[in-house]
C-alpha cells in the first residue's frame, strides 16, 4: 500500500509517516474505531486526496495529521517528530508553525475583518505585527480579495470566505495544507475556482491533503487514499501527477 519507491528517497523528503495509527473513541461499552491501523507516508510537495464514505474516518485522519488530535495507538511522525509524545503547548506550536487548515464551513471569526482574520495565525507566533499585516495584504491580494480587506466574513460570499480561509492557512507558510471538504459548501463553479487555487499552490510546491466526497475532486489530486471503516482500502496514484511531483522534487 505504501509507495514502493519510498525506500529510495531520502528520509528528509518524508513529511508525514503514520505507523499503525489508531484513533478509538470509547463510548461506554462500545469502542468506535474511527481509525484502525493506518500506515501512510506522504512526501514533501505531494498532493493527496482522502476519499471515503461518510463516517469512514476522513476527518479523524485529517485532524490527526493536523495535530488537532492525537492517536490512541501507533505513531505519527511529522517531519521526524513523534507528535503523540508532545505536550499541549508543543503541539499547538506545531499547528501554528507547520499546519494550514481549510474547513468546509470556512471557520472565519465573524467579528473580525478579513485583514484581522488573516492576522490571527501570526498573532500567536509573536511575529512583528507590521510584517503580519503586509503578508495578510499580500495573500488577500493573491486570492483576489485585495479590495475586501475591511469586510467582515458575513459580508462575503461563500467562495470569497473560503478564499480568505485559504489565505489564512497560508499566513504561516505551512509545511502541509489540510482541507476538509473545502468545497462542500460551494456551488460547482466556485468549487472549480477554489480547486484551481489549490492546484496553483501545489504547483508552487505546497504539500496538500484534502478530504473529499467527490471522485472528480479527488482526480485533481496526484494520490488518492480510499478509506473504509477506519482502514486504508487502497491508494491510487494518478499518472500525470508523478511527472509533476518528480519535477518538484528535482528543484
Amino acid at each position: 500500500m505504501a509507495d514502493p519507491k519510498s525506500g529510495d528517497t531520502p528520509s528528509s523528503d518524508i513529511l508525514v509517516r503514520l505507523d499503525k495509527v489508531e484513533r478509538h473513541y470509547v463510548m461506554g461499552q462500545t469502542v468506535v474505531r474511527a481509525l484502525d491501523g493506518v500506515d501512510l507516508e506522504i512526501k514533501r510537495g505531494e498532493y493527496w486526496a482522502i476519499v471515503g464514505r461518510s463516517g469512514s474516518g476522513k476527518s479523524t485522519l485529517l485532524n490527526l495529521l493536523g495535530c488537532l488530535d492525537r492517536p490512541t495507538g501507533g505513531h505519527y511522525y511529522l517531519g521526524g517528530t513523534s507528535v503523540g509524545e508532545l505536550d499541549d503547548d508543543e503541539i499547538s506550536e506545531i499547528r501554528g508553525q507547520r499546519i494550514g487548515f481549510i474547513f468546509q464551513s470556512f471557520n472565519l471569526i465573524p467579528q473580525l475583518t478579513v485583514l484581522e482574520n488573516l492576522e490571527v495565525p501570526l498573532f500567536y507566533q509573536d511575529i512583528d505585527p507590521a510584517y503580519a499585516r503586509q503578508r495578510a495584504v499580500d495573500l488577500a491580494t493573491k486570492v483576489g480579495l485585495g479590495e475586501r480587506l475591511d469586510h467582515r466574513p458575513l459580508e462575503l460570499s461563500g467562495g470569497q470566505q473560503q478564499r480568505v480561509a485559504i489565505a489564512r492557512a497560508l499566513m504561516n507558510d505551512p509545511l502541509i495544507l489540510l482541507a476538509d471538504e473545502a468545497t462542500g459548501n460551494l456551488d460547482s463553479r466556485t468549487e472549480q475556482e477554489i480547486l484551481a487555487l489549490l492546484d496553483e499552490l501545489h504547483s508552487e510546491g505546497k504539500t496538500i491533503i484534502m478530504v473529499t466526497h467527490g471522485q472528480t475532486v479527488a482526480d485533481r489530486a496526484r494520490r488518492v487514499l480510499y478509506l473504509r471503516d477506519g482502514k486504508v482500502e487502497q491508494i491510487v496514484k494518478n499518472r500525470e501527477s508523478a511527472i509533476h511531483e518528480d519535477a518538484v522534487l528535482e528543484q
Binding site: 499547538s92 506550536e93 499547528r95 501554528g96 471557520n107 472565519l108 495565525p121 500567536y124
Partner: peptide, 13 residues
C-alpha cells in the same frame, strides 16, 4: 467555535 479556530491556528492554552 472561535476558541476551536484559534486553537487550530496555533493558539496555546
Amino acid at each position: 467555535r472561535e476558541i476551536g479556530i484559534r486553537r487550530a491556528l496555533g493558539a496555546k492554552r
